[in-house]
Computed example of a mutant assay.
Amino acid sequence: MKKILGLLLVILTSGQVYAQNTYVFFGSFNRDKTTEGLYVYRMDTLRGKLKKISSVKGILNPSFLTLSPDGKYLFACTESKTKNAGSVSSFKFNPEDGKLTFINSQKSGGENPVYLTVHQSGRWLVNGNYTEGSISVYPISENGRINPRAQRYQFSEGSINEDRQDRSHIHSTVFSPDFKDLFAPDLGADKIRSYHFKSDETEPLQVAEQPFVTTIAGTGPRHFTFHPNGKFAYCIEELGGAVDAYSYNDGKLEAIQRINTHTDEVKENFESSDIHISPDGRFLYASNRGDENNIAIFSIRENGTLEIVGYQPTFGKQLRVFDIDEMGNFLIVTNASTGNAFVFKRDIKTGLLKKVGRKVKIYGVSTVKIRRY
């Protein structure tokens, strides 16, 4: 009996430690540097509850967040949607007290930075600028400081939607699983641009032999992700409301499927936004806005194609970004228009979601990142 009680105590203690060391980072469209822009919460991974630990003022509109591979530094798109501005900023994170400390900022090369990614070496930061349609590359120092920009690629061509595609609009920058290539969906040009990434060079971003793949005109490719097995990639269309599935090999993409993210009842006014795959590679999640505010859930077949499983309402409007924790147990959504975030427990067998915990209220919440420490 004592052994059983002892074992239960170890399990409960381990669960408590896990909960105390899983942090959730939120950014917001705060519109004012005197108000909070970044938030740090601790997640109880037994019940999915979030507890606010700290916040940061003095920065404007942190619209997208990413972390260094070791989790020591948080990088943010800042001054997003700010005329004649736009920057990328670095913060040091202390997991002992859950606080962020500002390090520095650099100009993003555009007034609306919307996406950041860090190379596995931790030495390079790549930013996508939406409004101007450009990609910027920055060296990162060992202390997390962002150095002056090393490269900037500027694009101009648009596509057939005069209101939304008057020019190039880079919406994400994503490394391949081996970090030797970089892919950048261009919503304005209906292209997924591709580059080789030579991390030992002073100008690492180099145009690939296949410089881009073209999506269907007017569909507006937005966010992009790779399957954990490295054989498949998926791009969500903001304007087309669909997911494009690709086979992937040696830096090249080949289309294998296009499937709607929205229900058959919705014929117009739909926008898709973010896309993620569960760590076990079995399910893909894609978010919808407009008349639908939900997450489409797909199972992933062995050949990389998708099959719809169901839809989960997000209990808010204008879901921009969501994230899945590294264990695959929880998914967190951010509803910008309604200023709320929710935690969902993920059924690892069916892929379905169930809302847990309480609603988190954050004005203009724009993005979320989950990390276990």
Rank of each mutant, 00 (worst) to 15 (best):
T261N: 03
L352W: 00
V118T: 12
E36P: 00
Y153S: 09
F155Q: 02
N143G: 03
I160K: 10
G110H: 15
K83A: 14
P279D: 07
V56M: 06
S272M: 04
Y115Q: 05
L187H: 06
A150M: 04
K83Y: 07
R152K: 15
F93T: 10
I362D: 08
N288D: 09
E96F: 09
T66N: 12
F226H: 09
K180S: 13
S272A: 15
L74V: 10
Q210C: 03
I297P: 01
Y130Q: 05
V266A: 06
Q206D: 05
K81Y: 14
N129F: 13
G357W: 05
L239Y: 10
L67E: 04
T225M: 01
L7C: 11
Y130T: 04
I4K: 10
N294V: 01
V333I: 07
D32R: 15
I259L: 14
T45L: 10
G281M: 08
A208C: 07
V17C: 09
Y234N: 10
N340D: 15
C235D: 15
P148I: 05
S68Y: 02
R145N: 01
E79G: 00
Y363D: 13
E36A: 15
E326W: 02
E307C: 01
I216P: 11
L65C: 02
Y115S: 12
Q120N: 09
G281K: 07
P69V: 03
A336Y: 13
L67K: 05
K92C: 02
T338K: 07
I146F: 03
G48D: 01
Y41V: 07
P228I: 05
I348P: 02
K231H: 10
G133C: 10
K2D: 08
P95E: 11
I146A: 03
P139V: 05
E292A: 12
G290Y: 11
F179G: 00
G220Q: 12
G240V: 06
G339W: 06
K355E: 09
G27W: 11
Y195T: 03
F75W: 01
A19Q: 09
E142C: 01
Y311H: 15
L7H: 13
D325H: 06
K49N: 14
K317D: 08
F344N: 09
E96H: 11
K107S: 13
G188F: 12
K83V: 11
K2N: 11
E162P: 13
D163W: 00
G86L: 02
F183Q: 08
L205D: 01
S63N: 11
D166M: 04
V88W: 09
P211G: 07
Q20I: 00
L253H: 04
G339F: 04
A245K: 14
L205Y: 05
V10T: 14
F175R: 09
T22A: 05
K57Y: 02
F342V: 00
T338N: 08
D291P: 03
S168G: 12
V368S: 03
G133I: 15
F175Y: 09
S194K: 10
S121M: 05
T261H: 06
G230Y: 12
L284H: 01
K345T: 00
P221Q: 13
L306V: 11
G122K: 10
D347K: 08
R320N: 02
